[in-house]
Design a protein around this nucleic acid. Structure first.
Lengths: 233, 233
DNA sequence: TTAAGTATTATGTGCATACATAATTACATG
DNA sequence: CATGTAATTATGTATGCACATAATACTTAA
């Protein structure tokens, strides 16, 4: 069979993946350089470049200038987990979204929270606890601290009507953040809000965002037992 | 100040991000089209294209042909979690890697596992349980089922010497897979292997991989309480 | 008035070319 | 032999151009 021109970057990508899969190019091995592949596939080098670059971003290939491209020896699977706005997460499941704030106070934060925010002890923090509901049933508990020094307007907002999640998204820009996932025992009050037995193991997502050097907010989301984060590889 | 030429795609990207951050372009709003931006920045349209395309992949922009580009209203944060080979995960922490297989038997799988593998009841499955150690201390328990119909060689391999994780990576190609993260109570035997109190909440990662329509393997990794998956936003 | 067809337009992609940059190799020099 | 330097090379990126494609806006016909 004659080598049909593989001249879209997706086609190149698929052909490369195929060769890796059938072990024509083995893990750790070098693959031909872009110019050669372009010649073989009958396309421009830029096209090969885009295909290989994308595969490198996906962790399938290792590329170094001058050194060339090789098949990743131990591919780190990158699980891309979409963390949507909770309202959307629920509405995408075709459930009715609900929200209830159960606590609001400007108060000093415990050490663990201050550490997350790298906060001086005099930072003014608004503490909110709320439950997000799916079809009127508790879906996730949100325990949030908002830095009022970063966005003083937050003090005036009625967070019993609009979720902090959404208000901040629209009003408090951030430059970067960090996120951590862990399994934790539910605290008694959280279990109560979720309306479940306190003995459960809760998937917990902690997210802190920054605007430059200034902490914006930190949240701890506690999902009830059984909740799963799914992703394709 | 004169508009210095912004002529690398990273520079364009940063400028775009800056404008979004300072709310010059507000969430939901259209931004100028590629040609205009190229003119403004003094660079080629392809350069703008790459910058915007990358931002769209990151979820910051929404792009549609003909319709144009707008700032994402509710950016879905994509948490990219690297799931490395466990040996590497441990060695990257500058700890000594160890491995011990504690169970190996070809046996019929329970329903939950068969469901994950979409397995007929006559599929031959090798069941392995192993512990990965960091500095001789239990790090994670691995409960794995390998489809011998997909790769019969696995039956001959001495998995007490090499971890299934690494052997499969090198010998059993897969086309796709799925991964799910949840919080679960440790089973008694797992708690024992991890050498901890059984009451802990364990972060559990379940991963199943496929080669075409054929299941290759499914693993359940149980990490002890306190383990965190971290990522930057 | 509505439906079908057409023009327009912004993004998506391919190509050829040029040059930049990092990393390696080869070489020269002490 | 060690070491610094220059040549080489594969990838990285910018550019100008062309055309493809999807989505919208507009026009025309029933």
């Amino acid at each position: 069979m004659s080598p049909a021109a593989v001249n879209s970057w997706q086609a190149v990508q698929e052909e490369v993946l195929r060769r890796i899969r059938v072990r024509a190019w083995k893990p750790g091995e070098m693959i031909p350089n872009e110019a050669e592949l372009a010649r073989e596939f009958g396309c421009a080098r830029a096209t090969v470049n885009r295909a290989l670059r994308t595969l490198a971003e996906a962790g399938v290939l290792d590329r170094k200038r001058r050194a060339g491209t090789r098949v990743t020896l131990q591919p780190i699977s990158k699980a891309i987990i979409d963390i949507p706005v909770i309202r959307r997460e629920i509405e995408d499941r075709n459930q009715r979204y609900g929200y209830a704030m159960t606590f609001r106070r400007i108060e000093p934060a415990p050490l663990s929270v201050r550490a997350r925010l790298r906060a001086a002890s005099d930072m003014r923090l608004l503490h909110l606890i709320a439950v997000h509901l799916a079809d009127a049933r508790p879906y996730v508990v949100e325990d949030r601290w908002i830095n009022l020094d970063a966005g003083p307007k937050a003090e005036q907002v009625d967070f019993s009507r609009i979720s902090a999640n959404e208000w901040l998204l629209a009003n408090a820009p951030y430059t970067h953040g960090d996120l951590s996932i862990s399994a934790e025992h539910l605290r008694a009050e959280e279990a109560e809000l979720l309306d479940i037995d306190a003995s459960g193991a809760a998937l917990t997502i902690t997210r802190t965002t920054w605007n430059g050097a200034q902490a914006v907010t930190t949240v701890r989301l506690s999902y009830p037992p059984g909740y799963r984060l799914n992703t394709a590889l």
